[in-house]
Design a protein around this nucleic acid. Structure first.
Lengths: 189, 189
DNA sequence: GGACTGTACATCGGAACCGATGTATACCTG
DNA sequence: CAGGTATACATCGGTTCCGATGTACAGTCC
């Protein structure tokens, strides 16, 4: 009986980042915003008018509480603190990520940034194995009918670039995944 | 006086893909959907209920026209064909991509998939140079205050993975970009 | 002292997202 | 010939997105 707080896909990653940052320490919205900008902002900036409603959603869902503090330099701050349910929800989202969080590199990186909060090495390894399975299934970007095309078969230099870069990424990640899984399994034994 | 068809960010990439695929040949929605699924579907699936409204937007904007054909095996097909304005708009979007299309790898790959339609090598090179500039500015995912952290400085194995993978991707892409720019510049002379 | 930048939040409203659901035809399989 | 799958499109409606805009205070720069 899994409860979903948000229906939208982008919302899910944003909420994950909020929960992840707050897991370590209470923060107010402005600092949280800068943390998120540092993590993913160079790729996809997060608008203030997206962040603040997201915070409200999480508050409404009982995952965090807001405490108003007199503003040191500006308007009063709302210090955000995770509730027990918020901590549980973060762990649930880390342990059972949606498929999008596995397949989309942006989402996956956000998930990795907080995976350490899932203290159990076996649970962490299970998540990495989902990514491993995704990377191991042969997929391309370009097809001749149903047959995936290799970089060498593609004439267009730009499409070739896509395949070349994707292959390099995939190799580096597979190597890292296997290393990390080996050491996680070592801990578990 | 640039006209924007869509305000949303995801919409812009989806529309780019539609215009890009139709540039080569007229297609009906179902085949278009499978093309898009092959290109980006393994990472971010596109829902039918997102695609069909997007087609309608482009039609309304005069970028494509629909011709109803009796369905060979099922319901009547709407064969989509770019108008002259649609062809111009694709080239405009390829030549002057939004910043998101440069920074977000998913969007960038979609753009690369169709960049050949921008026949002019100098214009193609200008787009690649924007990506080059983005990759060359030093950014990290994790910071100690304002100082970006290198992979070696990060304890958390998962965050280290993010940096390791990102670095490998970046290296591969920089090498490809420099190669490709060199050969594009060669053509232009 | 006016202009600008940074801090710290908030609301509004039109646009887009997308799961669920519906309609219809054609083919294949047991 | 019923049931499942593939083709081919469409609408509905709750949710989310996000640019524009507003409020307010503090520090900096010229």
């Amino acid at each position: 009986m899994t409860r979903y707080i948000s229906l939208r896909k982008n919302a899910a990653v944003l909420e994950l980042a909020i929960l992840g940052f707050l897991y370590d320490a209470p923060l107010h919205g402005y600092v949280l915003r800068r943390h998120i900008a540092a993590l993913t902002g160079h790729v996809r900036p997060v608008a203030e008018s997206t962040l603040y409603p997201a915070i409200k959603r999480l508050e409404k869902a009982g995952l965090l509480v807001r405490a108003t503090e007199p503003g040191a330099v500006a308007a009063p701050r709302h210090v955000l603190r995770l509730t027990e349910e918020g901590r549980r929800e973060l762990k649930r989202r880390l342990a059972e990520p949606a498929q999008r969080e596995i397949t989309d590199e942006n989402n996956w990186f956000t998930l990795l940034a907080f995976l350490r909060h899932l203290a159990d090495p076996a649970a962490q390894a299970a998540v990495l194995r989902r990514r491993l399975a995704f990377l191991e299934e042969p997929t391309s970007f370009f097809y001749d009918g149903d047959r995936p095309l290799a970089a060498e078969e593609v004439d267009d230099p730009f499409r070739r670039g896509v395949l070349t870069i994707a292959r390099a990424t995939s190799r580096a990640e597979l190597a890292w995944l296997r290393d990390t899984l080996a050491s996680l399994d070592g801990v578990g034994r």
